[in-house]
């Protein structure tokens, strides 16, 4: 591990939230992005879980980076991630049972979310504690932002409002049933809505960033 401190804290943060924003730039972690973005609340919960797991796993991996043996490396990464995902899953089951039910198997599927293992390999195994933790936070934040953005588009077009809890509903487009003009697009809740919205979002980012290839 000779490449010590190849990044600064600032670089790590900017990398996470724009230049290497997961999902949009790296094309990693697409499965949960498509599956849980039917509502903003679900997307936010998922994003917070990913932030927690990323910070913890980056912290652990970074603190034992000098001891890692090359061929057992991936094994240790996976084990670390699986343990923290289990903890996050149990927390949701204990304190957010409704959300846990809704997200179902997508929480344990964080284990195989490529973002986390990719960051353990590319950042935490080569950088100091502080940079690794900041990188974990920034990557998780970038992921959460994308999730929430996608989820808000889908939820608003599908129902006309954003529901945080039964009492806190933010109406943006007033649906016909409530006396407004907007006819909800049910297809936005279906798989097609997820795929097409994400496809268009990627296209928009490509356009803005001016794809050089």
């Amino acid at each position: 591990m000779s490449k010590e401190n190849t990044m600064t804290v600032g670089q790590a943060f900017i990398g996470g939230v724009w230049t290497e924003i997961p999902v949009l730039r790296l094309m990693l972690g697409l499965c949960p992005t498509l599956a849980v973005t039917t509502s903003v609340k679900a997307g936010l919960t998922m994003g917070l879980c990913v932030i927690f797991v990323l910070i913890c796993s980056n912290f652990v991996v970074s603190s034992m980076r000098h001891l890692l043996k090359p061929h057992l490396r991936i094994m240790i990464f996976t084990l670390t991630i699986a343990v923290f995902v289990t903890i996050a899953d149990m927390y949701l089951k204990a304190f957010q049972p409704v959300m846990s039910e809704k997200l179902g198997p997508y929480i344990p599927l964080i284990i195989v979310n490529c973002i986390i293992i990719c960051r353990a390999e590319a950042c935490a195994a080569q950088n100091g504690l502080l940079v690794s933790v900041v990188d974990g936070f920034a990557m998780g934040l970038g992921f959460t932002i994308v999730l929430c953005f996608l989820a808000s588009i889908r939820e608003v077009l599908a129902t006309g409002c954003i529901t945080f809890s039964p009492t806190l509903v933010l109406t943006i487009l007033k649906p016909v049933e409530a006396g407004g003009w907007f006819t909800p697009w049910a297809s936005m809740l279906m798989p097609i809505g997820a795929f097409v919205t994400l496809g268009l979002m990627l296209a928009a980012v490509n356009q803005i960033a001016g794809k050089k290839s």
């Binding site: 094309m27 798989p191 097609i192 795929f195 097409v196 496809g199 296209a203 928009a204 490509n206 356009q207």
Partner: peptide
């Protein structure tokens, strides 16, 4: 294909249409 759609975006949109067929 328009340049900004080339690659992953168009693949995702195609996948979306396929899900509609599988529904």
């Amino acid at each position: 294909i328009p340049t900004c759609l080339a690659g992953a975006p168009i693949a995702l949109i195609t996948a979306g249409l396929l899900t509609l067929a599988f529904m």
